[in-house]
């Protein structure tokens, strides 16, 4: 399979020095190190085509940021092969990073005390962007991200949402074909989140930028990413859409039935009665044992007035998946 990003059997283990507490522990640590192995990735493979938006999900410490660091060329794996745009990231770090943009939600790459515009100029010099191109891109990005009033303000005076818009622009000044976003909307309020989201979609549509995104905001992942990779415990749990994920985990649906007269709730494999009053039943349905058409048949005899089927929230689905992996 030929992809823009190809990863196979990627493995990485960290070794953490263990130290006994106290001054003698520190002294002993100098003479004799005890190391503990912490596997972060244990054989992960995937391929991403150019122009895709892919979400990377996983519980904390699952190996997401390790994967991103390897793909960005700042970390060298123990085993496995990676090519990004035909290059091995960590072998040719400088050439590789010239073609990617990275935004870390919790770190800033702007000069804290200087106006945003100055950060952009110096970043242009670092990435060797032609003066004319730089001016044009700054104008475009400023218009798209609504940076007009912010350009002259020192970064330290910006709100988190304003700063994040500037960070996005900063990561795109050299027009990278690949963008990594690590929790880009963490801590943002709803309007700021929406602005960032629609910008990412727009960027992908207009320039064909490939985007790899990690986030704990699953609504965001659901709207942005047709495809998600779920990593937990250093292994790939799922590679597909969130709808696939739902089907695979298949959590119970909750069905609320309003009745015209009181009746005995039905009994069936895969159906649990949560609550039954004179005019209402609340049922929990396992869709694997009782698919919706069959449920309709079971309810056909009952005096049904109205009926509501609720999907389990996506958080619950993912939490179930993580729990199964653990």
């Amino acid at each position: 399979m030929d992809g823009f990003i190809t990863v196979s059997d990627l493995a990485k283990t960290y070794y953490i020095d263990e130290r006994s507490p106290g001054m003698w522990g520190a002294l002993r640590g100098v003479l004799h190190r005890r190391r503990r192995a912490v596997p972060a990735l244990a054989g992960v493979s995937f391929t991403i085509g150019a122009g895709a938006i892919v979400g990377l999900l996983g519980p904390n410490g699952a190996g997401k940021s390790t994967a991103i660091k390897i793909l960005a060329g700042i970390l060298r794996p123990d085993a496995g092969t990676v090519t990004v745009a035909g290059r091995v990231p960590w072998r040719e770090r400088r050439r590789h990073v010239a073609g990617i943009g990275v935004v870390f939600g919790q770190k800033s790459q702007l000069w804290w005390d200087l106006p945003v515009a100055e950060s952009f100029t110096i970043l242009g010099a670092i990435y060797r962007v032609d003066q004319g191109d730089l001016a044009r891109r700054i104008t475009d990005l400023a218009a798209l991200l609504d940076l007009g009033d912010l350009m002259a303000r020192p970064v330290r005076t910006l709100s988190l949402g304003q700063r994040m818009r500037c960070e996005l622009a900063a990561a795109l000044l050299h027009a990278p074909p690949l963008l990594f976003l690590d929790e880009p909307t963490i801590g943002l309020d709803a309007p700021a989140k929406l602005a960032v989201r629609s910008f990412i979609q727009d960027l992908n549509r207009r320039h064909g930028t490939t985007v790899l995104l990690t986030s704990h905001d699953l609504d965001e992942v659901e709207t942005l990413c047709p495809r998600v990779l779920v990593i937990a415990g250093g292994r790939m749990l799922l590679d597909g859409s969130l709808a696939d994920l739902r089907r695979r985990v298949a959590p119970a649906k909750r069905v609320t039935v309003d009745l015209s007269e009181s009746a005995e709730p039905p009994k069936h494999d895969g159906l649990t009665v949560v609550e039954a009053t004179a005019r209402r039943w609340v049922l929990e349905i396992d869709p694997r044992r009782l698919p919706t058409p069959k449920l309709m048949a079971v309810l056909a005899e009952a005096p049904v007035v109205d009926l509501a089927i609720a999907e389990a929230p996506i958080e619950q689905v993912v939490a179930r998946l993580y729990a199964e992996a653990a």
Binding site: R94, R95, V97, Q109
Partner: peptide, 10 residues
């Protein structure tokens, strides 16, 4: 912060 610096092609 060194990770951020390593993301720059210099």
């Amino acid at each position: 912060q060194v990770d951020l610096l390593l993301l720059r092609p210099r």
